[in-house]
Amino acid sequence: MHGPALVNWLLALLAAGAGTSCLVRLRHSPCAPGGAHRPLARESDAAEALMGLGMAAMAVTGATVPPAVWAGLFGLPAAAFLLAAAHVPNGRAHRLHHAVGALAMTYMALTMTAPSGHAHHRAAALGLPLLTGALLLYFAAYAVWTGSRLLRTPTGTLALGTTGLPQACRLTMGIGMFAMLLTM
């Protein structure tokens, strides 16, 4: 990313921690045969682990990784989430969110490695700032919404312990996506 090195490393540590937490949750969660929501939760854990660890790698390596690698790493899951959201009504909004995140990561990777030139600057002024602004608004709203869900429980108390961990990871990654988009 284009921010200060300290910010990039702090963002990488935060995203790596969230991604690792999702990976551990995925590894230790049982495949409950009777639970209807468990496959969707495992899918979510896998997607969030990929996004968190990918965000960490992108924050540190930046433009040194070829855009085709980033496009494959995030573009293929984005397409899979879009197809799944179109064909499976259960968890549609959740899959669309993961698709938006993966597409945003692809967009950032391609933007980081885009060639500079007069024609490119003219094209960027027409479309890319608008897309970046829309993504910034989306992830800001998502972070606020996720944070409010973390603080609110049915009893009205703060969610502490492992019950709030998935929401805390989602909040962390929403803030991380916002920060990465902001430093583009």
Rank of each mutant, 00 (worst) to 15 (best):
C31T: 13
E48R: 10
A80P: 03
F81Q: 12
G34P: 04
A36L: 12
A114N: 03
S44Y: 00
D45V: 01
G19M: 10
A104E: 03
A143D: 01
T163H: 13
T157G: 13
M58R: 09
G147L: 05
R42S: 05
L131P: 02
A57N: 07
T111F: 11
P77S: 00
A114D: 09
C31S: 13
L50G: 00
G91M: 07
L96K: 00
A141H: 14
T157F: 05
T157P: 03
G54P: 02
R152K: 11
L150V: 06
A102H: 09
L23T: 07
T111W: 14
L23D: 05
R122A: 15
V100C: 06
L82I: 08
P39K: 02
L150I: 00
A56N: 04
L130F: 12
L110Y: 04
T132Q: 15
A104W: 02
M105H: 10
H97D: 15
P66F: 03
A84V: 00
L131V: 12
V100F: 05
H94E: 15
A99Y: 03
Y107L: 15
A85T: 07
R95T: 06
L126S: 09
G164Y: 06
V144Q: 08
L165C: 13
Y107Q: 04
W70T: 03
G161Q: 08
G52L: 14
G156I: 02
Y138H: 13
S29E: 04
T64W: 11
T20I: 14
R25E: 13
H98S: 03
L130N: 08
T153F: 06
L73V: 12
R152M: 12
F139E: 02
T153H: 06
T20P: 12
Y107S: 09
A84W: 04
A124I: 01
A59F: 05
G127K: 09
